[in-house]
Design a protein around this nucleic acid. Structure first.
Length: 500
RNA sequence: GCGCUCGUAGUAUAGUGGUAGAAUCUCAGGUUCCCAACCUGAGGACCCGGGUUCAAUUCCCGGUGGGCGCACCA
């Protein structure tokens, strides 16, 4: 097939090299919105997750894991049952579907549609003889479209697959409060699957019906939010911020300013929230995205989720899909804990300051990553074609294979033997090494370039004489000779120099 | 979900009312060796179901999946 610098070449690479396959199950024709990761994709994903876990330990976060299915009451309390079910109007004739509330709001800008009952909406439709905008046929009655996947647990207990991991983390609040010995902020993250019954999933893994979330939560006091110690360490960092007022003026170039200035200019309100924005940006940056493809975009007030007081998306610029949200940073206030306290009859007020009598429900700040979107955008931004050669310029620490080892020729037993020894020694040092003897040496280099392997070791005739091998770097294709005994050490050194 | 459009080896494609052709790929053997070389041999596909027909991968209908547009996107 043709190798050129196009999105088609990239899309076929994803499949050919075992990054992403689907929709799954492919042999049965596939189900829209479900994808599988191949070995290369999974290796990359695992390396991203490991890096995140390692970093978050350093930032003082603990990890939890909760069930992906929760009873109905949880989603009543969280507000998802109400907000994730959309009223829809279907035309009797042409089957066009409209979202009832939005449709009516557009027709009656002066009425307050939000919160109106379905009966009231029907009444409004009847009174005004509203019909399908396409074919002028009357609508069917309002139906519900539930974005949550419903299931039954045991006999007849209604439950839902979680539409986000965050809520399940909040349900542990009283445990976490004790576990952390009331040392606020309590910092917790959860990684796992979430499910949404998207009406029309498109854009590959960017909008799946079963997807990963990696969500960080800060449980924090109201006062602490405004006077947050850790913020001082990061306040001078400059971040590309595109606030909603800029967007309203049709400006889509972010303002790169320090967090301190953003607070002073009232773009951000709370130092602790600003810190979360920094943390989201930091975790994104260490994955190796170039600066120019990252921006932080604020939601306008009517774009925000039902629980959010402020919301910023961390977006990556892609060729295929434009700006893609890979992380959402939300100020969820005390909404979630208040609701779960109410619905479960628990008292979630805890003393947050010096005075044990002064109790409050903690605020929640959330940093929610979509690992699948990370994988896609990492691959797309790393994809390069240079003179007909595909080079996947992944961050070397994240590449599926760290090293590949080749015998220069496959039919010289002495050379092959050394190559296998070098390969095994690398594995012994727990360095991801891949052995390949098939095809010409050039072809083997190219195969690894397509996987983003940063280093290739080749054993040649000279190796037989002086115990040295060549190490070739992916981006420059330059090579130099090093001693066989030093191979793992050299690789580790190189990785260390690149690691953030 | 609606409309338009498309679905052929792993990948990207040609083509046909009488079951497919080249490329690349994969495997084996040979040869060469530091950037997709060459030779020999082999392997591999018409999205699913129904209909029309003597015969359907091809035509029709339905489903399903992709792309685009509309709607939706916590």
């Amino acid at each position: 097939m043709k190798i050129d610098n196009t999105i088609e070449t990239f899309n076929s690479l994803l499949k050919r090299r075992g990054f992403i396959w689907g929709p799954s199950p492919e042999i049965y024709g596939g189900l829209a919105g479900f994808y599988s990761y191949g070995p290369a994709g999974m290796a990359l994903k695992n390396k991203v997750l490991s890096l995140f876990r390692q970093e978050l330990r350093a930032f003082g976060f603990g990890e939890v894991e909760c069930p992906t299915i929760m009873p109905e009451i949880v989603w009543k309390a969280s507000g998802h049952l109400e907000r994730f079910i959309d009223p829809v109007l279907k035309c009797k004739k042409c089957d066009t579907m409209q979202r009832a509330d939005k449709f009516l709001q557009d027709l009656f800008p002066d009425l307050m549609i939000d919160g109106m009952s379905y009966d009231k909406m029907e009444e409004l439709i009847d009174k005004n003889n509203i019909s399908c905008p396409k074919c002028d046929t009357p609508f069917e009655k309002i139906e519900e479209y539930n974005l949550m996947l419903k299931t039954e647990v045991g006999a007849g207990n209604i439950a839902y697959l979680r539409p986000e991991t965050a809520t399940t983390t909040y349900l542990l609040f009283n445990r976490l409060d004790q576990d952390a010995r009331r040392q606020y902020p309590v910092k917790i993250f959860q990684y796992g699957k979430a499910y949404r019954n998207e009406i029309s999933p498109r854009q590959q893994v960017l909008r799946m019906r079963a997807f990963d979330q990696f969500e960080l939560q800060l449980f924090i006091g109201k006062e602490q939010e405004m006077d947050y110690e850790d913020f001082n360490e990061v306040k001078t960092y400059e971040l590309p911020l595109l606030n909603w007022r800029l967007q309203e003026e049709n400006i889509d170039i972010p303002n790169t300013i320090s967090l301190e200035k953003a607070l002073n200019d009232n773009i951000l309100k709370k130092p602790a929230y600003a810190y979360c924005i920094y943390l989201g940006y930091y975790l994104t940056k260490i994955l190796g995205y170039p600066e120019e493809v990252i921006r932080l975009r604020q939601h306008s007030p009517n774009e925000r989720a039902h629980y959010a007081d402020d919301a910023w998306d961390l977006e990556i610029k892609t060729n295929q899909f434009g700006w893609v949200e890979i992380c959402g940073i939300h100020d969820r206030t005390e909404y979630d804990l208040r609701r779960h306290g109410e619905f479960s009859n628990q008292n979630f007020e805890v003393p947050m300051g010096q005075d044990p009598k002064n109790k409050e429900i903690p605020q929640i700040l959330e940093i929610a990553f979509g690992p699948d979107r990370i994988i896609y955008t990492l691959l797309e931004t790393a994809f390069n074609v240079e003179d007909g050669r595909i080079n996947l310029k992944l961050n070397p620490t994240l590449a599926p294979n760290t090293v590949a080892v080749f015998p220069l020729v496959k039919n010289k037993e002495s050379i092959r033997k050394i190559a296998i020894d070098v390969h095994k020694n690398l594995l012994k040092h727990r360095i991801s090494s891949f052995f390949d003897a098939a095809g010409s040496i050039g072809k083997r280099y190219r195969r690894q370039d397509e996987l983003g392997t940063p280093f290739c070791i080749t054993i040649d005739y000279e190796s037989l004489k002086d115990n040295t091998v060549t190490i070739r770097e992916r981006d420059t294709m330059k090579q130099r000779r090093i001693e066989i005994s030093k191979v793992p050490e050299v690789i580790n050194d190189k990785l260390l120099n690149i690691t953030p």
